[in-house]
Amino acid sequence: MSERPAAIDAPSAGVFGDMLRTVEKLDTPEGYKAELIRGKIVVSLWSKLRYLRPMRRLRSQVEAHAPEGHVAETSPFLFVFPPAERGFGPDLFVADETAFEAEGRHADGAALSLVAELTSASTRDADWLDKLDTYGRVVPVYLVLDMQVGEITAFWDPSPKGYRSRTTVTFGTSLRVPPPFDFDLDTSEFAGGADVES
């Protein structure tokens, strides 16, 4: 499979429950994940190797400030947003641990307190458009590490129309992560994984 995401038509296209069951049954190749984006099942590569250091650094920092009972992970779990008929596997997430006590292969998106996506050429549009719109109605904090331009944006204060607030800084500049985390994120090690052309 190429780095470019591949869309798969689900048997009952447009029926979220059927599509979700199809995603759960998919045997995606090692290193790939399946998500429900814009009414289609999209299979794409998991993060690049050089994204490991930024993801580990980000995870250690947000985990230290996570709300009580919440866990920070980079595992490819699927979180569902039934009103939006979406299912995303974030690059990094912080979620209430009780969300993982259920049976099945997906968790409720309402359990998330923070999501972070590291953009790639193949996922950039979904991270900035579809995921921003969906997360912006439910998830308290969304971080977009734009690896193509070397910037990180924090979105917060979700509403029925999307996030009300945002801040963007270049890698190497401290970023204030809003409550419920409420700390200054050190982004100095993110630049090493960036795809920025000089």
Rank of each mutant, 00 (worst) to 15 (best):
R56D: 05
A99L: 03
V62E: 03
F16M: 03
V115Q: 04
S159F: 05
P67D: 05
P54D: 05
G162I: 00
G193L: 06
H106S: 14
T22M: 13
A126K: 00
E24N: 14
L132A: 11
P140A: 11
S60K: 10
Q61M: 12
S122F: 10
Y142K: 02
E24L: 09
P178E: 14
P67M: 08
A107C: 02
A10L: 12
V23L: 11
P82H: 06
Y163C: 03
F155S: 04
S120C: 11
G69M: 02
R176P: 11
T22L: 15
R53C: 00
V94I: 07
E151G: 00
I8R: 05
F181P: 07
R57T: 13
D125S: 08
V42T: 09
I41R: 10
M1Y: 04
A102G: 05
L49I: 10
R86W: 06
E24F: 03
T187H: 02
W156L: 01
M55S: 09
A116H: 00
P11F: 10
P158Y: 06
D195L: 14
A102N: 11
A110L: 02
F79A: 00
T187N: 06
L112T: 01
A99T: 01
T74M: 13
V42F: 00
E197R: 15
L26W: 03
A191G: 05
P11L: 08
A111K: 01
F171G: 13
A72G: 03
S113I: 04
L49E: 12
D108S: 13
L143T: 09
R137G: 04
G162F: 03
E24S: 14
R59G: 07
A99R: 06
G14N: 04
K48L: 14
V149I: 12
L45P: 03
T153R: 14
G39Y: 03
R124C: 14
R166G: 08
G31S: 07
H70I: 01
V196D: 13
K131T: 07
D186C: 07
G17H: 07
Y142D: 10
L145K: 01
G193P: 10
P76C: 02
S75W: 03
G192A: 13
T74D: 01
D125L: 12
T168R: 15
A107W: 06
G192I: 11
D130Q: 09
K131P: 12
Q61V: 08
P90G: 03
S12V: 14
D182M: 12
M1A: 10
R53S: 06
R57I: 04
L58S: 10
